[in-house]
Write a protein that binds this DNA or RNA. Structure first.
Lengths: 177, 177
DNA sequence: GCACACATGTAAGTTGTTACATGATTAC
DNA sequence: GTAATCATGTAACAACTTACATGTGTGC
């Protein structure tokens, strides 16, 4: 049930409507936990039912602003402190590298290069965000920490992919069955 | 539908029964794509129905050995060459770092340390596997490449977590609201 | 006027988790 | 004999994806 806690945490940040939450997932949280509008809206309704958030406003275009309740703040703190993170992670792109040996070397190199280019674009995006000025409070510094994690993970992945491309391009690889 | 291709790829490796596939996921593939026996067994049945794998043997304890068919090999190659990897990744432990500012500094440090220790154990396990001798063919080198990816990603994560712990422990963090 | 972004919702289908259920072989 | 591992299966539930569906305000 990470989605609900991702929503609670985002609303601890500041009150938002569903669409703003959706954009927040797309630009930030979604790198760790993606969510689509068809998941977000029903979940917000459930969180209201359970008293963890409340609707604090209604704006143009039928928009509904939600804020965290005290119970909601308790709940996200409880989740952070008292539950173990789910460590299982699914990564399709990484899974595919286990099967490189099934491809012709040229094809394998192409796949790795595509992946490297994708990661390079992600890194450029992270660096762009990192260049934006931020506040000097724990919240802003927390986002810096998370972003730094994204940058380092992506840099490391690019280096690994470059190294992998070298391996598959090497005469040794070609000489083997 | 990564699970079915993970199974096909594992059977391209060598014929296996469901239980051996389960163990293979636990020790290797599962770091990129976890799967439980309750998912594996029904999926194997479907793959047989579709002619992508076939049962080639039956052993003690009702075990059933499966092998990839030509159609199955075509299918995994098609998947690797012609479909784009799903880039969305869910990582609960990483999501939680976005909400560190909601915790007391001591509690936040504890959470990060727990995460660092977990990663350190994973890294030790990867290094242990890496020390085992392997063959000199494309298949074995592919597993080396995947493993090297795991090692580098985990090393990078540990460095990031150590850096994050420093940030949260610093007097600056404590001085902010 | 028209395109685009804002804004919310539902429904069907797929995938994944947890729990239930059973039985065989091996090592001590 | 008994515990652990090997071995396979099903069922209920939860989570996620994709598609369907609709309407509002803003900028050109």
């Amino acid at each position: 049930m990470s989605l609900r806690h991702a929503l609670l945490g985002s609303l601890a940040d500041e009150p938002r409507n569903g669409y703003a939450l959706l954009k927040h997932f797309e630009q930030s949280l979604g790198y760790a936990w993606p969510a689509s509008h068809s998941q977000i809206y029903p979940e917000l309704a459930r969180l209201v039912d359970e008293g963890l958030i409340e609707q604090t406003g209604a704006g143009a275009r039928n928009s509904k602003t939600y804020a965290l309740t005290d119970a909601g703040l308790d709940e996200i703190r409880r989740w952070l402190e008292s539950t173990t993170p789910e460590r299982r992670v699914r990564n399709d792109a990484t899974l595919r590298t286990f099967f490189l040996w099934l491809l012709e070397p040229e094809e394998a190199v192409q796949q790795l290069e595509r992946e490297r280019d994708y990661s390079a674009a992600t890194l450029a995006e992270f660096r762009r965000i990192s260049d934006e000025p931020t506040g000097a409070n724990r919240k802003a510094l927390t986002y810096r920490i998370a972003l730094e994690g994204g940058i380092r993970a992506t840099e490391s992945r690019i280096e690994w992919l470059d190294w992998a491309i070298e391996q598959v391009r090497s005469p040794k690889w070609r000489s083997l069955e």
